[in-house]
């Protein structure tokens, strides 16, 4: 067990707070959607980008770098500020989001120089692409690891389960999937729309080594991701229990914040809470 120092955890928490403020700023200005989904994954992204991923913003094309795929591409408002903070581009570029002639759309487009490895936005594609990258890394005897962040609603897509079968059959222990399990999808709760339980058992039965944890607890996430693979010869999956809208009390677990953009009052209140 790796015990990150208190100082490190505080640093992650502070980064996450800053990122949430930037997300709400950007979304408020552009009247865009997906605030709740973005807040849900902030802590996972902070853990990956500031503690786990072997990447170099100064050398974004570096051979054998780790790869991160945001398969739930609609949560990209959380990724752009992370990439800026990591040093892939200047904070100023974040203003070029979701406006005419912008750099950043509401779903990510591949731009390795800016840290975006794969175009996503249509759900259910990231895990297969990740498996292909992981397979190629094995073939090349590369130490590369491939991380794929999936939405829980996204798991309704059958293609994920094709990839799940493939990854365990080919022993892709360099592939790490993380499910952002916030239990809400566009039209209702996950259990009402299309239930996933028993989710961990499903992945186990597909041959994946599974861990369940709190997707807002940095210590738990750092501990889990610091020892990869979980088991030699098996693909890894973390089922991260999260809260949609995490960080702003009146947005948490509220379905409406999947698509809603805050009004002036809500924006102010949210900023107050995040400060």
């Amino acid at each position: 067990m790796v015990s990150s120092t208190h100082k490190e955890i505080i640093r992650c928490q502070n980064i996450a707070k800053d990122i949430r403020k930037t997300i709400i700023d950007v979304i408020y200005q552009t009247k865009g959607p997906h605030l709740g989904s973005s807040f849900s994954i902030v802590d996972i992204l902070v853990t990956l980008y500031f503690k786990i991923l072997v990447i170099d913003p100064k050398n974004p094309y570096k051979k054998n770098r780790d790869i991160f795929i945001l398969s739930k591409g609609h949560a990209v408002p959380a990724l752009y500020p992370i990439l800026a903070k990591k040093g892939f581009f200047s904070d100023k570029l974040l203003k070029s989001f979701a406006i005419d002639n912008c750099i950043f759309e509401q779903h990510p487009n591949r731009d390795v120089a800016k840290g975006i490895e794969v175009t996503t936005g249509s759900l259910g594609n990231g895990l297969s692409i990740g498996a292909g990258l992981a397979l190629a890394a094995k073939y090349d005897k590369s130490k590369r690891r491939v991380f794929v962040l999936l939405g829980d609603g996204e798991l309704d897509e059958g293609s994920n389960w094709e990839a799940a079968l493939f990854a365990s059959h080919h022993k892709l222990d360099n592939l790490i999937a993380i499910v952002d399990y916030n239990k809400l999808q566009i039209l209702g709760t996950v259990d009402k729309v299309l239930g996933l339980e028993p989710l961990a058992k499903k992945w186990q039965s597909f041959g994946w080594e599974t861990k369940e944890l709190n997707g807002h607890n940095f210590q738990q996430m750092i501990n889990a991701l610091s020892h990869l693979p979980f088991k030699k010869g098996k693909p890894n999956i973390i089922i991260a229990h999260t809260i949609k809208g995490k960080g702003v009390s009146f947005m948490e677990n509220q379905l409406v914040w999947h698509s809603k953009c805050p009004n002036k009052e809500e924006y102010k209140k949210a900023i107050e809470e995040l400060s």
């Binding site: 297969s128 292909g132 992981a134 397979l135 990839a163």
Partner: peptide
């Protein structure tokens, strides 16, 4: 080593191919 029967799963096959091609295959 350069041949893979991915099973009867064409959607995954194309995704795999994309990932492999991103890794210069």
């Amino acid at each position: 080593k350069q041949f893979i029967d991915v099973g009867i799963a064409e959607s995954n096959m194309i995704g795999l191919a994309a990932g492999m091609a991103l890794a210069k295959k």
